[in-house]
């Protein structure tokens, strides 16, 4: 499969300003590279503050990078202008975490979806009402929901509306930024299944961002693990769970509660030391070394490169790199 998105050494530093001077930088995303292949779901997992949402926003160009770039279908995303940019917006969409803030409270469902169509499609359907209703049906809503305001819906239904807005654009690539983390378990399963079905039907490529490893595993073909602005490991989804290489991935895996008491109590428990440091002054060398159970002196001095250990399995750790 061909790569549809190529992220190349992407960096986003946010300035911390005091009066007129820049006091420091929050290194939200700090030198990240990977590719996403057409038709796959690429999972991005990490804890709060690791920069995963910033990365998602950079890829759909809601933010401009400090350095590095993203290629979509071979074109540099941040150089697109005019018609090419419009074309990019039509092909790349994003679904946000909080369905309570992602819908304009003063617009009715019909207007929300119709706006997306008018903004991106060249051919405007003749009977807009019918067309919007058909999209709503695809996400499990019905015609009677057309002329209602967002506040009349539950969280799960709102997320369906947000997905309908994205479907209306008929994109190729969708960034899903924690689409179910504010929903209950039973509703989460409905939305995840729907996203899977839609992918099959329309051959979407997904970037699925979440802090929940179990959900990411269920959705993704390949998974990248992020820690403090860096990617520490990329591997096919099964492999990352069966044979995690990076100590952080191992710690993360052993920290997620498993909904099966027998397995949960018999497995090994690894815990990281202390708390994640601030992304303002990340530790030198490997960013995980102060918390890593297996850190050595090299880890504190030099940053480990992301290298391919096996086919399609990348890890950034001195345990596996030759030096």
């Amino acid at each position: 499969m061909d790569p549809i998105v190529v992220v190349d050494n992407l960096r986003k530093w946010f300035p911390i300003k005091k009066l007129f001077f820049t006091k420091g930088w929050v290194r939200a995303v700090d030198g990240v590279s990977f590719i996403i292949r057409e038709g796959e779901t690429f999972g991005l997992v990490g804890e709060s503050g690791c920069g995963k949402s910033t990365l998602g926003r950079l890829i759909v160009r809601l933010l401009e990078p400090t350095s590095g770039t993203v290629y979509f279908e071979g074109k540099d995303v941040f150089r697109l202008r005019g018609r090419e940019l419009k074309e990019f917006r039509r092909k790349v969409q994003i679904v946000f975490q909080d369905p309570y803030s992602s819908l304009n409270p003063r617009m009715m469902v019909f207007d929300i979806v119709a706006e997306a169509i008018k903004a991106t499609q060249q051919e405007i359907p003749e009977d807009m009402e019918d067309y919007v209703a058909s999209i709503l049906e695809k996400v499990g809503l019905s015609r009677e929901h057309l002329y209602r305001y967002p506040h009349e819906f539950s969280g799960g239904q709102r997320q369906r509306i947000a997905i309908a807005r994205v479907l209306a654009v008929r994109p190729k690539f969708i960034v899903l930024d924690e689409p179910t983390s504010s929903l209950d378990v039973s509703v989460q399963a409905q939305i995840l299944n729907m996203l899977k079905d839609l992918q099959k039907e329309h051959n979407f490529t997904y970037l699925f961002i979440s802090h929940d490893l179990a959900v990411v595993k269920y959705m993704s073909h390949r998974i990248a693990v992020m820690y403090l602005g860096k990617i520490v490991e990329i591997a096919p989804s099964d492999e990352i769970f069966e044979a995690p290489l990076h100590p952080y991935t191992q710690v993360l895996l052993s920290s997620i509660p498993i909904p099966d008491p027998k397995i949960a109590r018999s497995r090994m428990k690894l815990r990281p030391k202390g708390e994640p440091p601030s992304p303002i002054n990340p530790p030198p060398g490997c960013r995980f070394h102060p918390r890593c159970p297996q850190a050595c002196s090299l880890c504190a001095r030099e940053e480990p490169p992301l290298i391919e250990i096996e086919r399609d399995h990348y890890v950034a750790c001195w345990l596996y790199a030759r030096k």
Binding site: R57, I94, F96, S102, R106, M107, E115, T120
Partner: peptide, 26 residues
């Protein structure tokens, strides 16, 4: 800062439309 404004930007709406359709009414 609301997500619906970000969503509008991701749709490629021009700033005037975002200002008058999404921000001003709210």
């Amino acid at each position: 800062e609301s997500l619906f404004v970000e969503a509008a930007k991701a749709l490629g709406l021009n700033p005037l439309k975002i200002m008058f359709r999404h921000i001003l009414p709210n």
